[in-house]
Structures are given as structure tokens and as C-alpha cells.
């Protein structure tokens, strides 16, 4: 680690902050698909446990008559998600609402890691021998893509469940462009198939990139602010953090809404 020899330049500082703790550790050199981001994995897992623990505890001790304030807070979130799902999703699946809840809370928690001082965990990590650490899992494209692809695959499965395999394949080749004659139908088949692939692909990609891009940019701004002299950090740091509260919740909300929308689009007839 170069910091021990000399103070890092701004570029070095930022580059260093953008390297994941991975296995095997790469430092931004040659691309190797079989690297595994340990920091993303563990932070996401721990925050997942936090979510499951908080909600699971409330769910276990749920009281209809005498809810605690914390239960009411949890219920507020659950009700928000449930209302959106009821409004948008008209299929039979009972999985969508829990899925949307998980997506929302988990992403909020992961995004909220941005609020920790940008150097806090990496410095602590250095003390225990972790030379690289990125603390915001949602600023890692893997986290966003993993979720968005899961959602897209799930929406395809829901479509197959709702329309049957035959119905789904038929739609794959006959929508979005409809034709009357047999000949035209055959002509449009590859076009439709291509359109459907693009549709699913772009859904997955845009869903992931929107979230990751926002969080990555947010993290980057925090790093830039951290590069300012100490007396100049307070005001821009506070301002960006306050603004970031909005982004954190908004991005999670958008991801949740789009998850519901994509699932409902999949089960609806074209």
C-alpha cells in the first residue's frame, strides 16, 4: 500500500477507493471474470441480515392491538409496498410483494452505507489488513445486475406461469408486432423475437445501471469532497449528504416500482 510511503495524489486516492476487496485481489489490471468481490458480498449479506433481523423480529412479535412504535414504522413500509403491489400487479403470484419489500429495504440499507464517512470503514479495514474496501454494495455493478437480472428472470418465469410455456413462446414471436396473414407472421417472427430480447435486455440493463450509476456517482462526489482541505469539507459534505438522502430512498423506490411493473407486464396479455 502506497499510502505508507507518501501521501496519495487525488487520482491515486480515488482509484484506490474504487477497487473492490476481491478474491483473487485485482488492482484494476487485466480483466478476469472469475474474481469475487468480497466487500460487496459481505456488506450486502450483513445488511441483508439486518433487514431480515429487524423485520423478522417484528414479524414474530407482531401485535394487532398494541403495536410498538417500531412495529408501526415497519408496518408503514410494508403497507406502502403492499399498496403499490396491489395497484400495479394484478396477477396471482404472492411472491411479488415480499420481493418488492426485500428490494426496497435492502437497497435503502445498502445505499445508506454512503452516509458513513467515506474513509471510515476503509481505514478500519486497513487496521485489520484489508487494503481495499468499497462499502456501498449498490455502487458495484455486480450487485445491481444481480438483482435486475434476477428480477428479469423471475418476470419471465412469471410470464410462463401465467400464460403457459406455449403461450409465452407464442407471444415471444408474435408481439409487439402483430400480423394478420400467415406469411407476414412468419416474416415478423425474427423481428418480434429480436424486439423481445432487446426489451428484456434493456429492462435488466437500465434497471441495474440506473441504480448503480446513481450510487457510484454519489460515492464519487463524497470522495471528491473528501479530497478538499478539512475546513472546506463540512458545507459541501453536509449539503451532498442531505441531497443524497433523497437519492438513496428514491433509487430504492424506483427499483422497487420497476420490479413490480416488470413483473406485472410479464403476466399481462399483450
Amino acid at each position: 500500500m502506497s499510502a505508507e510511503q507518501h501521501a496519495p495524489s487525488a487520482t491515486e486516492y480515488i482509484q484506490h477507493h474504487l477497487i473492490n476487496l476481491s478474491s483473487p485481489q485485482t488492482t484494476g489490471g487485466a480483466y478476469n471474470f472469475w474474481t469475487f468481490h468480497l466487500d460487496t458480498f459481505w456488506v450486502a449479506l450483513i445488511l441483508g441480515f439486518v433487514f431480515v433481523a429487524l423485520f423478522g423480529l417484528v414479524a414474530r412479535r407482531v401485535s394487532v392491538d398494541k403495536p410498538t412504535k417500531f412495529q408501526l414504522f415497519i408496518e408503514l413500509i410494508v403497507e406502502l409496498v403492499d399498496n403499490h403491489v396491489k395497484e400495479i400487479f394484478h396477477g396471482k403470484s404472492k411472491l411479488i410483494a415480499p420481493l418488492a419489500l426485500t428490494v426496497f429495504v435492502w437497497i435503502v440499507l445498502m445505499n445508506a452505507m454512503d452516509f458513513l464517512p467515506v474513509d471510515l470503514l476503509p481505514l478500519l479495514g486497513q487496521k485489520v489488513g484489508l487494503h481495499y474496501l468499497r462499502v456501498v454494495p449498490t455502487a458495484d455493478i455486480n450487485q445491481g445486475l444481480a438483482m435486475s437480472l434476477s428480477v428479469i428472470i423471475l418476470s419471465i418465469l412469471l410470464g410462463i406461469q401465467a400464460k403457459g410455456a406455449g403461450g409465452f413462446i407464442k407471444e415471444f414471436f408474435t408481439a409487439p408486432f402483430h400480423a394478420e396473414g400467415m406469411g407476414m407472421k412468419i416474416v415478423l417472427m425474427p423481428v418480434n423475437a429480436a424486439m423481445q430480447c432487446i426489451e428484456y435486455g434493456s429492462r435488466g440493463l437500465s434497471l441495474a445501471l440506473r441504480l448503480v450509476g446513481n450510487m457510484f456517482a454519489g460515492e464519487l462526489v463524497f470522495m471528491l469532497i473528501a479530497l478538499l482541505p478539512w475546513w472546506g469539507q463540512l458545507i459541501p459534505g453536509s449539503a451532498w449528504a442531505i441531497f443524497h438522502i433523497l437519492i438513496v430512498v428514491l433509487q430504492a423506490y424506483i427499483f422497487m416500482m420497476l420490479t413490480i411493473v416488470y413483473c406485472s407486464l410479464a403476466v399481462e396479455e399483450h
Binding site: T35, H37, F41, P137, I141, N142, Q143, L145, A146
Partner: peptide, 13 residues
């Protein structure tokens, strides 16, 4: 670039 972390994150999800 996406890498094998995808699977880990998808699994956790």
C-alpha cells in the same frame, strides 16, 4: 465490469 460476484449477490438476493 461484471464478474463472478454476480452469482454471489444473486444468491444472497
Amino acid at each position: 465490469q461484471p464478474n463472478a460476484s454476480l452469482f454471489g449477490q444473486a444468491l444472497v438476493f
